[in-house]
Simulated scan of single mutants.
Amino acid sequence: MNNTLYAKIQEEFNHIADTFIEKEIDVLADENLITIQSKYNLYDIQPYFAQLTNDVLAPDTKLTIESEDDFDPETDDLYEYKINFENRRAYLKREHYGDGVFYSTLYEYTAQYHKSFSVYQNKETVKAINLSYLYLKNGLPDQFIECTEYGISLKTYTCENEIIKNYKLEWPNHDHHCIGELTFDTEKKLVMITETASDGRVRVLFDTTAPTKNIEEVLEKIEAFLVENIADQILEKVKIEEPVYCILFEYTMQGPFPPTIAFGITSEVEGNFEDKELYELYNAPDMRYFSENDEPNPINIDFYPVDIQSSYLIANSYGENIPWQNEEACELWEKQIFDTYLRICKRLMHFDFSKSFAKTENFLVMARDFEQCNEEDFYQNMLYYIAKK
């Protein structure tokens, strides 16, 4: 039965763009719908969609735009909703990007399911982005099926006392799955979501129990983990027979924690080391020993102990909430991340890794934002640090 349903949903997804504009016009013409605007993504049919992306608004947040003081076009996102206030449901959500560019979502409701379908729109194009069904059982979530250009996923919910206790997330034709566990306080307020993958890995997706949200303290905790815990794991798990010229952390400002890790070995460097450009020496995907590789040389470093994951969530959420238009704030955050990784590199330079590998004379612990390609900045700072020592 599921395969038949998946095929039907896939076929519908393939034709969203053909009928979306016509359906959107009908919604826009509905006089029973009221238009509201907001800086925030306030609605989706997937249960706890904001918590699943760790993007929950503060209780005192003003949700709607009612005056010029509520919105800064230079820094704020703009969402437009068509709402039926009688049944308190949204029928259209538009995220504006200016110059006739939108991400638009239409919603439909029946007793059996809630449905959403989203497209990217500009003046020439309508492209399907997402088609989702939330199937209900006794009025509570039963299954959530999502289809995108990358395929279909299925969440099956278990409810108890009118709240979701857990779900199973799976992908058709794949053996891998995840079990999500939802934790509530005594007032039935969600405080934590964790996912345990079929290989045993645990991910904390949402957590309100973290003791601090001071960003400097959070960065200090992450730094300590990436120095002490990772060093211990290298000594325990990494065995490389040939000389190593670098340990390399790679990250991105879209989510700077956790990084990936790679080990550069001398046999990967053709010709003279001194003649190579930095991007040739310090680029993790080109390295044989890379934590993202399963074969032939897996690096089984665990960046996800449960105790550190809440700190990742706080730090990454902090960065995501800085408006990209606020250049000063973005530059400060970028510097804080750079300085954190630079301190990690400096501290790891003092560890004895001889149980795991031999170091070359030009061995460095390095870091790199793989989108900004700032290896030159890390390299020069590390050379200066070594020279001073």
Results as ranks from 00 to 15, higher is better:
D185W: 08
V191P: 03
V101Q: 11
N272H: 11
P259Y: 10
P323T: 10
T75A: 05
D175V: 02
I215H: 00
F13Y: 15
K335F: 11
K389E: 15
V218M: 13
Y318H: 08
P285L: 03
S118E: 11
G255C: 08
M366N: 06
K82C: 03
T208G: 02
Y341R: 10
V101A: 10
T156L: 01
T260D: 00
E195M: 14
G139M: 01
L182K: 13
A29Y: 05
V227M: 05
G180F: 09
Y6G: 02
R88K: 11
A224P: 05
I129M: 07
Y157D: 02
V365A: 09
K115L: 10
F20S: 05
V56Q: 00
N87G: 01
S118G: 14
D55S: 14
I36A: 04
E270H: 13
F206H: 11
M192V: 03
R347Q: 15
C159A: 09
L140Q: 03
K23H: 09
I314P: 02
D72S: 11
R94G: 06
E223L: 14
N316G: 03
V56R: 00
L63N: 04
T212V: 07
A197I: 02
Y107V: 02
F338K: 06
N362Q: 14
L182R: 10
W171R: 13
N272I: 09
F290L: 02
V365D: 11
D142E: 13
E216G: 08
E277V: 06
I152R: 01
Y251C: 08
P296F: 14
K23G: 01
K346V: 11
P305D: 13
F144V: 06
A315G: 13
C159M: 08
W324R: 10
H96T: 05
C246Y: 07
R88N: 09
A58V: 01
F102N: 13
E334D: 12
L63F: 06
E195F: 12
T194S: 13
H174K: 10
M366H: 08
N3Y: 13
E331K: 09
T75E: 14
E170H: 05
H177Y: 15
L383E: 14
E241K: 13
N41D: 09
S267L: 04
S153T: 10
S67E: 12
D70A: 03
Y379H: 12
I179N: 04
Q10N: 10
M382K: 09
K93T: 08
T158G: 00
T360E: 13
N374D: 15
N122H: 07
V119C: 14
I344L: 05
T252G: 15
L182S: 11
E228M: 08
Y43K: 06
G139H: 00
T148D: 08
E228V: 08
A387G: 09
D232H: 12
Q309T: 10
L5T: 05
T35M: 07
L248V: 12
E80H: 04
P172T: 11
T252F: 12
C159K: 00
Y341N: 07
I261M: 05
F338P: 06
E223K: 15
I247M: 01
